[in-house]
C-alpha cells in the first residue's frame, strides 16, 4: 500500500508497507511479438453463472481466466434522496477486493473504481427501460475479485451486470455485451490481458446490443488511427455476437435451475 490510511473501523497493519521486490521483474517488450497461447482474434473462455447471490434481486458471476467479477442487483427500490425523477435511475458501484491486484489495494474508494463504474453505467443505461420504474433506483453492485487489466474489468463487469439485470426480470430492450481490443502495432488483439494492454499502443472497449445491432458505448484510450479504431470496433462487434450466445445459454440454464428450486 503506497499511502497509509488509518481507519479505526478496521484492523490496521503497520504504518507503511511495501509489496515485495523481486530480483527479476523486467519483462522485455520484444518478447511480445506474437501471441503465445491464443490467436489474435480469440477471446479467453467465459464462465458465467447467473443467480449466485440468493439475497439479491438478480446476480451474476463471470470469470474469464484470471478476471473474476461478481455482480448483484437490488431494486427497483425507493430512491434515497427526495427529489422527483420521472424516470428510474441506475446506480453502479464498483468495488475492488483488497487482494484483487498485484499490490494490495486500500479498502477505500479511489478514482479507478469510480471510472469503471461510470463506464459500466454508460454501457448499460441505454438498454434499460428506465421509464417503467419512475421514482425508483436500481442498485448495481459490482465486486472485482481478481483483475486482469482495466479493460477486462469493464467488459466483464458490463456483461455480468446486463446478465444480472435480465435474471432479475428488469425490463431491458436488449442484452449488453462487451468486448475489448488492443492495438499491437498493426495487429489487433482481442480481449487483452493486463500485460498485453500495458504493452499495446492503445485499447478500446466496445459495448453493444447484438440483438438490436446497436452500439451502446465505446471507451477508447491510448493511441490508434481512426481506421484501426474502426477495425477494432468491427472485430469486437463480431465477437460480441458470440458472447451473446454464451450469455443467452447461461440465462436459460439459470432460469431452469431456478424453476426447480
Amino acid at each position: 500500500m503506497a499511502q497509509y490510511s488509518f481507519d479505526r473501523r478496521r484492523n490496521n497493519g503497520p504504518e507503511g508497507s511495501q509489496p515485495p521486490i523481486f530480483d527479476d521483474h523486467i519483462i522485455s517488450k520484444s518478447e511480445f511479438k506474437k501471441r503465445k497461447d491464443r490467436a489474435a482474434l480469440d477471446i479467453r473462455p467465459i464462465f458465467l453463472q447467473p443467480g449466485l447471490i440468493s439475497q439479491a434481486t438478480g446476480s451474476a458471476y463471470i470469470e474469464t481466466e484470471r478476471a473474476k467479477v461478481a455482480c448483484a442487483i437490488y431494486g427497483p427500490r425507493q430512491s434515497k434522496n427526495t427529489s422527483f425523477y420521472e424516470k428510474g435511475r441506475l446506480n453502479v458501484e464498483v468495488k475492488f477486493a483488497p487482494y484483487s491486484c498485484q499490490s494490495r489495494r486500500s479498502p477505500m474508494h479511489d478514482a479507478e473504481d469510480r471510472s469503471i463504474g461510470m463506464a459500466i453505467h454508460q454501457a448499460l443505461i441505454s438498454s434499460v427501460r428506465l421509464e417503467t420504474f419512475p421514482k425508483a433506483t436500481i442498485d448495481i453492485f459490482v465486486t472485482i475479485i481478481e483483475t486482469d487489466g482495466i479493460e477486462s474489468c469493464v467488459s466483464a463487469g458490463s456483461i455480468a451486470a446486463s446478465t444480472a439485470l435480465a435474471y432479475a426480470g428488469i425490463e431491458v430492450i436488449g442484452l449488453v455485451m462487451s468486448c475489448s481490443a488492443a492495438a499491437m502495432g498493426s495487429e489487433i488483439w482481442l480481449d487483452p490481458t493486463d500485460e498485453e494492454s500495458c504493452l499495446s499502443d492503445g485499447s478500446l472497449v466496445l459495448s453493444c446490443m447484438p440483438a438490436l445491432s446497436s452500439v451502446t458505448s465505446v471507451w477508447q484510450k491510448g493511441r490508434m488511427g481512426p481506421s484501426q479504431a474502426l477495425a477494432c470496433v468491427e472485430a469486437c462487434q463480431t465477437k460480441c455476437n458470440d458472447i451473446h450466445a454464451v450469455v443467452a445459454q447461461a440465462l436459460v440454464e439459470g432460469s431452469i435451475k431456478r424453476s426447480y428450486r
Binding site: 500500500m1 497493519g13 503497520p14 504504518e15 507503511g16 508497507s17 511495501q18 509489496p19 515485495p20 449466485l52 447471490i53 440468493s54 439475497q55 477486493a97 483488497p98 487482494y99 484483487s100 499490490s103 494490495r104 475479485i145
Partner: peptide, 17 residues
C-alpha cells in the same frame, strides 16, 4: 449453505514495531 466468503492473502514488507 448459501453464505459465500472469498479470502485472499497479500504479503507485504514493513519495518517491525
Amino acid at each position: 449453505g448459501d453464505t459465500t466468503v472469498v479470502c485472499g492473502i497479500k504479503a507485504e514488507i514493513a519495518e517491525p514495531e
